[in-house]
Design a protein around this nucleic acid. Structure first.
Length: 297
DNA sequence: AAGCGAACCTGGCTGC
DNA sequence: TGCAGCCAGGTTCGCT
């Protein structure tokens, strides 16, 4: 489920249930997800208060009263569901009927305010870690991570600096979390379409010989911010799972212009192009060959 | 050095 | 109905 807008949607949903509450009981139902859980995982959480719940790129960060930070990544299929004790479970979601646990409910957080937060992850590409607050920046998860695309750092100038002399395709450069952190397959496709940039154009083509951003580079910076902000406002995109912690759906998928629209007519007025799928480094790219030319005159 | 395919894992959908 | 094949919102590893 998770690119930046989906993770931010989850953060906003978890915040009222978790911040200010203590973990009363943490049940870890298997030894690992993508990676092993940290040593004594539940013991280090139980009794701790969640002081704040933040997000960096696609990571959730729960600040604990112990001084540790619970770092969480949702991988491809990670989801959270918040329920109030005694409340009826939503049917058809990942909890089995009768309020029991589903096959992929890997972690259950019981909280002092009566809420239960369940982490479900069918594919187990997600993971959780505990890192001392002081070491977050230098930890393996965050050292070398790129800029936050919704922050002030994202600009034409920054893109020029990051993409300078790179011959890697724009699609790959935008997916590279060491450059800009938080974009994934959907929002890269959407941003390239809105900017009219070909996904296979070299990243360095957004930089002039003197190292200045091209007009397209400035546009791309604005478009990335716009697309992500719109998606956050829409509660993220719902593809195969719910996007929100109460089981409800995001709706940005209705605003996709190219993603998952192979063979559909381009939505640009008067454009006769057809959305085309191509595979770049193993991932589907959707684009309009008419609107997204290689050369940017 | 960069860039690509494969791997990690499960489930859903399509087509035979 | 069954089964094989392909695809999926992410990241990392290892081989050119």
């Amino acid at each position: 489920m998770p690119e930046l807008p989906e993770v931010e949607t989850v953060r906003r949903g978890l915040e009222p249930a978790m911040v200010g509450a203590r973990f009363t009981k943490v049940t870890q139902r298997r030894p690992d997800l993508r990676f092993p859980f940290p040593e004594r995982f539940s013991e280090r959480l139980e009794g701790q208060e969640v002081k704040a719940l933040g997000r960096r790129a696609k990571y959730l960060l729960a600040d604990l009263s112990s001084g540790e930070v619970l770092v969480m990544h949702l991988g491809m299929s990670g989801r959270f569901l918040v329920t109030k004790d005694g409340a009826t479970q939503m049917p058809g979601e990942f909890h089995h009927e009768h309020g029991g646990l589903g096959a992929h409910d890997h972690v259950v957080f019981g909280l002092s305010n009566g809420a239960t937060v369940t982490y479900n992850d069918a594919r187990r590409f997600g993971f959780m870690d505990l890192v001392p607050r002081q070491e977050i920046e230098t930890s393996k998860h965050f050292a070398g991570m790129g800029i936050e695309p919704l922050g002030n750092e994202l600009s034409g100038e920054t893109i020029a600096r990051l993409f300078m002399a790179k011959r890697t395709p724009l699609k790959a450069a935008l997916l590279d979390q060491r450059l800009i952190a938080g974009l994934g397959n959907i929002y890269v496709c959407e941003a390239l379409f809105r900017t009219g940039l070909h996904p296979e154009a070299p990243a360095g083509s957004l930089v002039t010989k003197t190292g200045e951003p091209t007009e397209k580079a400035r546009q791309l910076a604005d478009v990335i911010r716009d697309v992500l902000a719109e998606a956050v406002d829409a509660g993220g995109s719902t593809l195969r799972d719910h996007a929100q912690v109460d089981g409800s759906l995001g709706y940005f998928q209705h605003s996709f212009r190219v993603y998952d629209r192979e063979n559909e007519p381009c939505v640009t007025p008067d454009c006769t192009g057809t959305v085309t799928r191509l595979v770049q480094s193993g991932r589907s790219t959707f684009y309009c060959p008419e609107c997204q030319k290689r050369s940017s005159p």
